[in-house]
Every structure is written in structure tokens, then in C-alpha cells.
Computed example of a mutant assay.
Amino acid sequence: MNDQFQHVMVLISIIIGLAITHLLSGVVDAVDRANDEDDPEIYSLLGALWATTVFFWMVNFWWFQFRLLAMEGAWTLWRYLFIILYSVALYTLAVILVPRNWDAIKRYTEYFMRNRRWFFAALLLASVADVADAWLKGGWDYVLGMGPFNNLVAVLTVPVVAIGIASKKIRTQTVVAAIYSVLFLIAVFEYTPVLVSPGHTI
């Protein structure tokens, strides 16, 4: 099973690695772009909040995939494709959130608002995949055992996505991003992220 797991995780590692690389290099490029003399409005609390959320989401995703070692049943192509699609959803969040070419961006908020429908669609997809991923590791008992904040974030994703797509106000978008980011970070650290082998207790 361990050999199977390592084989399965190779492609997923590449996808998540590319996503994190894109996100971090994009942040560094944004800092450089913001120092240009043409005074672009690159700094954005909205972008920073979502970038923080997506970064910790990817780290959290990678951390807990170790629990797949305890998954009952054999690996199938469908299970493999599901985990890949989950990682692709996270990659999509990172790519939509951070532009590839900062030179073409004058105001980050305008860029975000222009692409917000795609971003929030990917956010909803990733959230649904996260619940399914937890269920895959241990059924509904595992899902409920992830903690109240984790389940609260999963439920709140639906109204967050609806508001995010519908609202054209930066202030509303920023408030929604701040609430979601805080709750998400609490959820990440609420469920003690200790890496242990399946069947072992700490």
C-alpha cells in the first residue's frame, strides 16, 4: 500500500508544487511591479487575503493526503482522478488569483473583479472536493471529526461564492475574503495537524 501511495502522489506533488511556485513567484513579481514609477495599484488587501487562504489550503491539502494510507479498499482510476482533480482545482485557484504577466495589470482589484466568477467557481469546486476527500479517508465520521470550524467553512463556502460572484463592490469582496480567511485558518489549526502513520495514536 505504501508503494501504491507513493506512486499515486507523484503527479499530485507536481501539480501542487507548480501551484505553490506560481503563487509565491507571483507575489514576488507583484512587489517588484508595485515599485515601478508609473504608480500601479498592485497592493491589495483583497488579493493578500485570498492568496493567504489559497496558500494554506494547498499546504493543508498536501499535509493530510498522508491519511490516504488508511483508505479502505484498493486504489482505482476513479479515486486517482478525483484526487488529481482536487489538486487541479487548487492549482486553478492559484493561477486565477495571481496573473502571469503583472506588466499588463494596472490595478489588481480590477483584475480580480474581472476574473472573480472563475475564481469563485474554482473555490466552490475545491470546497466540495475537500469534503469528498475527507469522506474518502474515513466516511462521515471522519468528516464530522474534522472539527466545527472546518465544517463551518465548508457550509459558508456556498454563500461566500454567491456573494463573491454577485457583488461588484471591492469593500464587500474584501470583508467576505477576510471572514473566510480567518475562519479557514482557524479550521486548519483547530484540527491538530500531526502527521502519524495510520493506526498509530499520539
Rank of each mutant, 00 (worst) to 15 (best):
V182C: 04
P193G: 00
I12E: 13
G47V: 04
L97W: 00
A178Q: 00
I12N: 11
F120W: 07
G145C: 01
A132I: 13
V182N: 06
A162G: 00
A48Y: 06
L68M: 10
V8P: 03
T21E: 06
N151P: 07
W62C: 06
A122D: 05
N60T: 04
E190A: 09
F112A: 05
D3K: 08
Y108K: 05
Q65Y: 10
Y80N: 11
F64Y: 12
S167T: 08
W62K: 08
N35Y: 09
A132V: 13
L125Q: 02
P99C: 00
V160N: 15
V155N: 05
L183G: 01
N2K: 02
R114V: 07
G164I: 00
H200G: 11
S181I: 03
L125C: 08
M71F: 14
K169I: 01
A104Q: 08
F55A: 12
E72P: 05
K169D: 06
L125V: 09
G139T: 03
A104D: 04
P148D: 02
D29A: 12
F120P: 06
T174R: 03
R33L: 05
L68R: 01
N151W: 07
F82D: 04
W135A: 12
L90E: 09
K137N: 03
Y43D: 15
V54C: 10
Y43E: 15
Y111A: 04
G199C: 03
D103W: 01
L45S: 15
H200E: 14
I96L: 04
R116I: 02
L85R: 07
Y191E: 10
D141S: 07
A166R: 13
V128E: 07
R107G: 04
V88W: 13
F149G: 02
N101M: 07
A126C: 10
T174K: 03
Y43P: 12
L144K: 12
A178S: 04
Y43V: 15
L81A: 10
